[in-house]
Design a protein around this nucleic acid. Structure first.
Lengths: 339, 339
DNA sequence: CTGAAAGCGCTAACAT
DNA sequence: ATGTTAGCGCTTTCAG
């Protein structure tokens, strides 16, 4: 493969020689820097184009000590939630000359360390990373890197530099509040068994706290391993309702399993939201097309991406106290009683 | 922000001074290259760790003329299909020291050119990009780059270097075959209106060709703009069936709108697959959790990602004729009659 | 096994 | 408006 295309990568010097203009001026033209006469500009551009020159950012970055990359470190891509965050980030970065580069940790702290290390070794202009919980090593790296760090999604904790997100405790508490107000009392929880999913943990903590204030404890809980899928939602819903048939509400740790549960319950003929209420978390687009609208909380994913990107890009000053708190938004849907 | 953390990024020289070992030897230790005595090795490693040194790959890449990056250029992330491809790629790249870097084109050729240009300017070790249709400029860039190029997803066309994918014409034709064999005759098609989605176009072409061989033409078609979602699937299904109530099969250009259509039809009480059959394309995980299993074609996304990565990584020689053709796999599901 | 010298391709800073 | 010089931080190459 590729043996018939033995082209040596072109350099500035090649363009310089082809156009009869000094390397420095060629460089200026290619970066739109400094004043260059229209005539030489044309010569250079033509030469570059006909040769098919592509600048070498490795060399450029080393010389200028600046790299137009923003490292984005997230736990997962299959989650349906991170593409939205990324969307917000790219949209906001689009006119800044900065480029997002994505690293995925799979919710593994050692993997996060590796990914961070690798990304920092490219000397990016900034870092956006999910969550507030990081290894000592990771914090050390970020401290030494001397670049803007924005932690996203979560604000319940101490940011390294600054954080943009929602309070998951609050999201959980507010959902509990709504459920209690609607009159449900025998409440079950279905969530992933991931010690490293701190946001899910905090949501549940906030949820249970609010229940406790009303003198209520979770009547049942069910955990699963691996990816969230409709199928998992079905299976766990069946399991929890078989075990505890008199539950009147199920709180799911995300919309995907919540949707699976909703579909299963509808097939079984449960009276929703009359006898059984359901709620998820995230506010994903999928919910728009289901037979009933699952009650959920909008996690403000796109806004989070945008604000984080704005800060890294310097479009917006970092917050005084280091925290931008967005409000999780309750979406009542059809699967909770309206009073 | 960040004013309290003014650390200058550390260099090899810092580690060298801290450990009393020459820069060259430090470099050897940090890269596990050449023989270094266990003693000096320890000294260096300790120094590097306590300082919190992170190597500068910009400088390293410039000096060594090698960069352990693989550029991956895909049309979309929200498509639910590309995360799978990426999964295959990362899995296979994991033990090679190569890192995928993703660029997204949004199905826009000019945008593809820009993304490619930007990625090539980092001088990656290889390029994996979706599709066989590229601008003249893009082809020129790739020719001059002098690195392995693997075009993925599609094999109906002329690869620049080599291609890994399925024949979408064949996938469409095979689905047509199954539908005809099952006895359906009044067939409608619902797809996205995207001139740049060449694979969807080829699938439909293969589909219609096979129908034509049986003397049948599409009885109706409906196109939509924008993202595929359950909701769009519902709306378009309602529209096409209102317009042409006597259709007995709907072929969707992907599983997401197919699923939306399926849910809508079930709610309306259509006799599926008796009076109305449905099929999508891709074979996404979502289908596992729906009330009925949508008939579809497995597009072999993960395999495609793996094979492409293997070639770029040099784990597998590029195919003689430049093409690795995987077989699209028919998944019969519940929404087509079994004979 | 370790070190010294040269230079990767580009740009900052200073000429002119 | 354009050119010259030096060097970014690392690795290659060659000597010990």
């Amino acid at each position: 493969m590729n043996t018939k295309r033995p082209h040596r990568p072109l350099t500035l010097r090649d363009v310089s020689e082809a156009s009869g203009v000094s390397e420095m001026t060629v460089s200026r033209v290619l970066r739109n820097r400094g004043d260059v006469s229209a005539a030489t500009r044309e010569k250079v551009l033509t030469a570059a184009r006909t040769l098919g020159y592509v600048p070498n950012k490795i060399a450029g970055g080393l010389a200028s000590q600046r790299v137009n990359l923003v490292a984005v470190v997230i736990p997962s891509l299959s989650n349906m939630v991170f593409p939205d965050v990324l969307g917000g980030i790219s949209a906001e970065l689009d006119d800044t000359g900065l480029q997002p580069v994505v690293g995925v940790t799979n919710y593994s702290p050692p993997r996060e360390d590796t990914v961070l290390y690798d990304m920092l070794s490219w000397r990016p202009s900034g870092v956006i990373l999910a969550g507030l919980e990081h290894s000592k090593a990771a914090r050390a790296m970020l401290d030494h890197a001397g670049l803007p760090v924005v932690e996203i999604m979560d604000i319940d904790g101490e940011p390294i530099d600054c954080a943009v997100g929602i309070s998951h405790r609050r999201a959980g508490a507010e959902m509990a509040e709504e459920i209690l107000n609607a009159g449900y009392r025998r409440i079950g929880f279905i969530g992933t068994h991931m010690p490293e999913d701190h946001r899910a943990r905090k949501r549940l903590a906030g949820f249970e706290e609010r229940l406790a204030e009303a003198g209520i404890t979770l009547a049942a809980r069910e955990y699963y391993q691996g990816n969230s899928s409709l199928l998992k939602g079905r299976e766990l819903t069946e399991r929890i309702l078989t075990r505890e048939p008199d539950l009147d509400f199920l709180y799911y740790s995300n919309d995907m399993i919540g949707s699976g549960g909703l579909l299963w319950c509808m097939e079984q003929g449960y009276d929703i939201p009359g006898k059984l209420g359901l709620a998820g978390f995230n506010g994903v687009e999928l919910l728009d097309g289901l037979p009933m609208r699952l009650t959920t909380t909008d996690a403000r994913r796109i806004d989070i991406g945008r604000r984080a990107a704005r800060i890294v890009a310097g479009k917006e000053p970092p917050p005084e106290d280091g925290v931008i708190a967005l409000a999780p938004t309750f979406l009542s849907g059809d699967t909770i009683r309206h009073r």
